[in-house]
Nucleic acid binder design. Structure first.
Lengths: 172, 172
DNA sequence: ACATATATATGCGTCATGCATATTACATGA
DNA sequence: TCATGTAATATGCATGACGCATATATATGT
């Protein structure tokens, strides 16, 4: 089956994809420069900053990795001195915590991320930024399809700058 | 050094990051479902559709991979019957072409991509889409910093839906 | 014709990930 | 209470997707 309606799409659709791609490329490259790990590593660090003591199992769900994949990710972060495994109340689980070094790195990652996003918006006036913000919020409201998707989509967010989050009910 | 001005950023900055992340997740997952390869594979297929006969070296630059990485990517696509290496005029180079199977796959990848992006915009009115389109175009105009970045940012675009591209001068 | 530059390919290593399975700890019902 | 099931974590092993160093083949310029 072919999709006839695609022909009627306006250019906004494609521009949205292009912008997402261009930004993602740049944000990934920032991350690689700040800390030479890829994949879900940055997300793990940022999420653990919001939710100290999180278990591997919950982190796994937020990052959408397999359990072994998450265990190995934490292994690497532990080797790097970014994350510590501590005892959890539930003796089966481990409580994941950022080290001091991890918290510093996290701040750096978030700062760089916001700088890059900010730079992308340089060309807009204050009014244009507000209008864009409202439209982005509207799109974001409809995006997540599950409860976990709400956590996932906000896994790199800066809570400080995201006042009035359009995706309610996703506190970890 | 800390970044004091970050405190003054409005929420638009963060929302832009969240939307880019959410969309990228979904687009990646689409790709994985349509064709079980990751990384720059989809980009290679789409670019080769626009520029049949492209060399590995130029493709390498558009995808921002190492040369060996690109060679191996093409190896995999050749094994999958998606791409063919043909003789190029320059005897050192190879001319890369999509097979018939590759072209079909490419169409599928682009269709799915546009469907997903389109779905994200469902909640907007026609007017809102146009306003968003103009703002995205404005942001995109300032994004690429090099000539090659212009190619890169458009490597997954649908030329059909991207009328009036805001990033001029990037035909391959 | 020869030296140099360019395009491609290969050997080898590593990171990030998944599947199958093992291990430990908790929970529950008889 | 104890046996059994369930849940959380970890490990063995394999693979995909890269990068670096190097080899090979072809062009190009003097």
């Amino acid at each position: 089956m072919r999709y006839a309606y695609i022909d009627e799409m306006d250019r906004t659709t494609n521009l949205l994809g292009a912008l997402a791609l261009g930004l993602t490329d740049r944000l990934k490259s920032d991350m690689k420069t700040t800390f030479d790990r890829s994949g879900e590593t940055a997300a793990a660090i940022i999420v653990l900053g919001y939710a100290p003591g999180l278990s591997v199992e919950i982190l796994r769900q937020v990052l959408d990795l397999s359990h072994p994949g998450t265990v190995r990710l934490i292994d690497r972060l532990e080797e790097d001195g970014i994350v510590e495994r501590r005892r959890a109340e539930d003796g089966r689980a481990v409580a994941l915590h950022l080290t001091r070094k991890g918290s510093k790195l996290r701040q750096k990652l978030m700062d760089r991320r916001l700088e890059t996003l900010e730079a992308a918006l340089m060309g807009l006036s204050t009014d244009e930024r507000m209008i864009l913000g409202d439209l982005l919020a509207k799109v974001l409201t409809n995006l997540p399809e599950t409860e976990m998707a709400k956590h996932r989509i906000c896994r790199l967010c800066s809570v400080r700058t995201c006042t009035d989050c359009p995706i309610p009910g996703h506190a970890i």
